[in-house]
């Protein structure tokens, strides 16, 4: 019972409490929401560490067993260590060499700004700006090449549906570039605008209704203990 029933009771109590909380616009109710939201953030934060532990464990096993591509895991560990070091370095240096209240923390070793966290100018911000940001931008732009090749297959006007897809996509694409305006100003101003505001809105609205009703049904199933997938499998 303790293993299966208590989680269901917790989900029910917390779920119902939050539904009721929405309809009680009292300070106590608002404070309770803020407080429990903070709890969720703490649990979520700790769960991120669990995820990171799992990834480290996987790559550690890869290196230990010498799986194919274990060298890449070494690169991963090196970068992980670098990011952790760079992230905590300003705090560690400032711990040993505290600066006066209100004074600028300055630069360490002539090139490492002692700004903690991810604020602009901090070492971690440098990593984000020069590693994470270009990587993500390039990754998303890379998808552009594959989308372009997929377009050749999707844009064959073989039926009414495919033709509508083709026309809408061409108008939207032309509407966003100077060529579209050069052909006819009405492409961005009238045609693109109408597609986005009328048929696109209608379809998106219906899809939103569907998703929302599905989400509500799923949430109710969780609260009433019908949906138990989050408990995981096993005999316990």
């Amino acid at each position: 019972m303790i293993k299966r029933q208590i989680p269901l009771v917790i989900a029910f109590i917390v779920g119902v409490m939050f539904i009721i909380q929405f309809f009680v616009p009292h300070k106590v109710s608002q404070d309770a929401l803020t407080y429990v939201n903070q709890w969720s953030i703490i649990i979520g934060g700790i769960s991120i560490l669990l995820g990171i532990y799992s990834l480290i464990h996987f790559h550690f096993i890869s290196i230990r067993r010498g799986r194919p591509g274990w060298g890449f895991s070494v690169v991963l560990f090196g970068c992980f260590g670098l990011a952790v070091l760079v992230g905590f370095l300003p705090s560690i240096v400032l711990w040993f060499k505290p600066v006066q209240q209100g004074a600028e923390p300055g630069v360490w070793l002539g090139f490492i700004p002692l700004k903690p966290g991810v604020e602009e100018g901090s070492p971690l911000f440098w990593l984000f700006l020069n590693l994470i940001s270009p990587f993500m931008a390039t990754m998303f732009s890379l998808i552009g090449f594959f989308i372009a090749s997929a377009a050749f297959r999707a844009f064959r006007a073989r039926s009414i549906e495919a033709t509508l897809l083709l026309i809408a996509a061409v108008i939207i694409m032309l509407g966003q570039i100077p060529l579209g305006q050069m052909i006819w100003q009405g492409i961005p101003d009238i045609m693109m605008d109408w597609i986005l505001k009328v048929p696109n809105t209608a379809a998106k609205r219906a899809i939103t209704f569907g998703i929302t009703l599905g989400s509500i049904a799923f949430s109710l199933r969780i609260i009433f203990g019908i949906e138990r997938a989050y408990l995981g499998g096993g005999k316990d």
Partner: peptide, 26 residues
């Protein structure tokens, strides 16, 4: 290599940010 650099740096930033923005203040 680029892929693993990204994952490694992302993981490290995850640890630092979790500490600085969640565990430490809350």
């Amino acid at each position: 290599i680029a892929e693993h650099i990204f994952v490694g740096i992302g993981m490290g930033m995850g640890v630092v940010l979790t500490w600085l923005q969640v565990i430490k203040p809350l």
